[in-house]
Structures are given as C-alpha cells and as structure tokens.
Amino acid sequence: MSLGNPFPPPASRARLRAAKWGDRIFLVLTGLGAAGVIGLLVAFVAVLYYKAQPTIKLLGFSFLYTQIWNPTGGVYGVVPFAVGTLLTSGLALLIAVPLSLGAAIFLTQQAPQWMRRPVGQVIELLASVPSIIYGFWGLIVLVPIMRVDVEPLLKEYLGWTGWFGGTPIGLDVLTASVVLSIMAIPTITAVSRDSMAAVPLSQKEAAISLGATDWEVTRRAVVPYARSGIVAGVTLGLGRALGETMAVTLVIGNKSAIPTSLFSQGQTITSLLANDFFEQATPLELPALIEAALVLLVITLAVTIIGRVILARFQRSGTAGLE
C-alpha cells in the first residue's frame, strides 16, 4: 500500500519530523515482533537440535529405527513412541472424522433452525475445554467402562482380527485413542460446521432443482464446496491429537514398548516426555528425550505443511475455498 499524499496538510516542520521518527520507531518495533515470531520457529529447531547433539552424534540414524528404549542399557530408539503417537492419533481420527462430519452436516443441513446456533456454540465452547479435563474424565469414568463393558465385547467378537489380543485392562492404546477422539471432535466439528454453513444457497438450490435428494445435495454441493474448511478442521484436530500430552499420559498405561494389539499399554512421544523428563536414569537420557521432542516437532511440522499444501491445491483448482 503506497499512499503518497500530493497535498500535504499544513504542519509545522517539527511535527512532521516527529511523525517521521514516530513512523520509523513504530516500523522497527513491529518489525521486531515479526522477527520474533519467525525467529521463534527457527530457534525451536536450532535449540532442540543443539541440545540433542550428544545422542545425535553417538547414535546417528539408529535413533530413528531402533525399536527399544532402554536408558540403563544405553539403547535409545524412538520407534515405540512414534508408533504410539501415530497409532493413537490415526485411530482417533478414524473415530472422530466421520462423527464430526456427520454432526456438522446435521447441524448445517438437517437440524431444525432453533437448535443450529446454540448447539454450534456449545460445541465451539467444548473445543476450548482444557485437555487435562478430558484425560481425567477418561481415567476415572471411561477406563472402567472400557475394561468391563467395551473391551471384553470387542475381544469376543473381533478377537479374530488380531487387533484385540491380550487382557483388556482399560489403560491402553484403544482408550487413549477414544479420549483423543472425544477431544478432537469439537475442533473438527466446529471448523467444518463453519465452512458448511458458508456454502451459498444458490449451490444447494441448483442441486435441488436438478432433483437431488437431501443426501445428494450434501454429497455433491455442500461437501465439495466446503472441502477446504473440512481439511483445515481435520488438520487442526490431527495436530491437537499428535501433540496431546496430559490426556494420553493418564490413560495409555505408559509402557515403553511397541504395542502388539489395541489392548497393549503403550507410550506416545508426549507421554514419554511427561513421564521421564525429570526421572532420567542416565545423563544421556536427557539429550535422547530432547531428540524425541525434535522428532515430534518434525512430525507436527509435516502435518501442518501437508495440510497447507492440500488447501493451496484446492484453492488453485478453482473451488471457492474458505481459509
């Protein structure tokens, strides 16, 4: 925005000079803020990389593919935790995405007018409830239900798939995924509801005039139009699930091994950090933990960037998108 004023108002020279200096100082100050935000991101990677040097030098790439974490034996591998993180977050999305989209569709397309706004606002509010509350509820209320009611049933009827082996004790990968999905649902629902509500009426009317049923209107007119909002919501939900610490730590059982079934106790990168950061067995465990944090940072960066790339592609492909 360049706005040269061809008719400068009469002003004393001193005032003009003051304004000029004011502008300069202001530019520098806001520029510092901008540099701070970008610098923070660079500093993140740099500091973690620097403090993880001892293990990076000693172990090299073996940290990324070793399947055992045994600090007293000097063996450090991030695989069990990376698997735990990706498995719980993936399962959580598998549960949360269909439910959230269904709810968003209901709230924007089918629900009676009077309930759309209030329910939408309540869901938005639930998205900002601190995660530790979901975790605590999971530990006290959900774990016994999973142990006594849900998991034995799953074992009996779906045991043959191999996913539900072992003794169901409630504190396991499955429960952690369920808690994560309950946490992610309000976020995904709220964002996709916003974008579905913003679909112009003309789009829907066009579909209706062609004889589409309610579902076909949603499937062919609403969802494609709102898809960038949906992707944004899912990315946001996935980001929160990947980085969630407290809720997971409380219910996953905290065992540093690769889960063999959904009833296995496991560990995510976040719960590893929460459990071990101040109870290090050996001096080398600290850099190993920091390197694990670096791995998690890279995973979440990748998710954010992939999400943005998908959004950019949608916008280029011409669908009116919402960002």
Binding site: V37, V47, L242, G243
Partner: peptide, 21 residues
Amino acid sequence: MAADVLAGVPAIVAGVFIYAL
C-alpha cells in the same frame, strides 16, 4: 505461515524448548 506452524507445535515441545534454552 510461521504463526500457523507455531500453533501446531505441541505444548510439551514448547516446554522442552524453553527448558533447553
């Protein structure tokens, strides 16, 4: 972009970063 990426950084990693710093 930086703000978006920072928003996606897990809180516990932010904690580890400040500790390391």
